[in-house]
């Protein structure tokens, strides 16, 4: 299988006030893989992927998406990028005032020119894929976290994106829901060829579905490699993190 670069982060620097969260981060993401970004809380994992869809802009550095430099795009030119890169938020972030079906229908109605009725019917078909068909008419606050997450994934997939960003998809889910989400992510890549970028510190997800992993530490890339590379690294910091030990060389 030939390796094709989809996304390239080049020397990204981002500071919030005096705090430099990202301090020259560079790596590539290949097309069709499940790519994990891991690291301790507050290390800037979510910050990094928000740069990709224009929710944040880097202070320095470049972001290449399919051969286009997108880090200086304005809101209008970001439009096509956002249709290509969908994002699933950490807290699902469904629109509370709409039913689940309407949530999924919204991008269809806005971008595919469907009427409200057509789009809701289509949305219910999409909900079927994530096994949420019977909850189409319920409002998100009535549902549990796992269900909301599945609706959020259905919403992200409506525009047939090439890339899907997952911000801590399994955090705050029970173990069964978490493994179901993992399975869904893996299937997206295997069956539809979608590239998934997953921000996570859930160790069991990392070692079941990741193709390649990057670990961020203190604003830099600490290690980039496959699951095996991570398991056999001599690096004490990485070792401590992937084994979840309280004692070790890592400082926060």
């Amino acid at each position: 299988m030939s390796v094709e670069t989809g996304i390239r982060f080049q020397n990204i620097v981002k500071a919030f006030g005096p705090k430099r969260v990202l301090n020259g981060v560079s790596f590539d993401v290949h097309k069709g893989e499940v790519f994990f970004i891991i690291g301790a809380s507050g290390v800037g994992k979510s910050v990094l992927i928000k740069h990709l869809v224009g929710l944040l802009y880097p202070d320095e550095g470049e972001i290449w998406l399919d051969g286009e430099e997108i880090s200086k795009f304005d809101e209008v030119r970001m439009g096509p990028v956002r249709k290509k890169c969908a994002m699933v938020f950490q807290h699902s972030t469904l629109f509370d005032s709409m039913t689940c079906a309407e949530n999924v229908a919204l991008p269809l109605r806005k971008h595919k020119g469907l009427t409200l009725k057509e789009s809701v019917a289509e949305a219910k078909r999409r909900l079927h894929v994530v096994h949420m068909q019977e909850f189409g008419d319920r409002y998100p606050p009535e549902l549990g976290d796992g269900m909301r997450k599945r609706v959020a994934i259905a919403r992200a997939l409506t525009l047939e994106p090439e890339y899907v960003l997952f911000d801590e998809p399994t955090t705050s889910l029970d173990p069964v829901s978490a493994r179901r989400v993992d399975k869904l992510i893996r299937e997206l890549s295997d069956t539809l060829g979608v590239t998934s970028i997953v921000v996570s510190h859930d160790l069991s997800s990392i070692f079941t579905i990741a193709d390649r992993i990057v670990m961020l530490y203190k604003g830099h890339v600490r290690l980039l490699g496959t699951r095996d590379d991570f398991k056999h690294t001599p690096d004490g910091v990485v070792n401590q993190f992937i084994n979840g030990r309280a004692q070790g060389p890592m400082d926060l």
């Binding site: 869809v53 224009g54 929710l55 809101e75 970001m78 439009g79 096509p80 956002r82 249709k83 969908a86 994002m87 938020f89 807290h91 972030t93 469904l94 629109f95 509370d96 005032s97 919204l106 991008p107 806005k110 971008h111 919403r155 525009l159």
Partner: peptide, 25 residues
């Protein structure tokens, strides 16, 4: 209150990520 809640729960960012203009919508 409604818009404020949407802002603090990132629902506005969710709209933008779906390439929907929050002002127009």
């Amino acid at each position: 209150a409604e818009l404020g809640t949407m802002v603090v729960t990132e629902q506005l960012d969710a709209l933008r990520v779906l390439a929907i203009d929050p002002i127009g919508f």
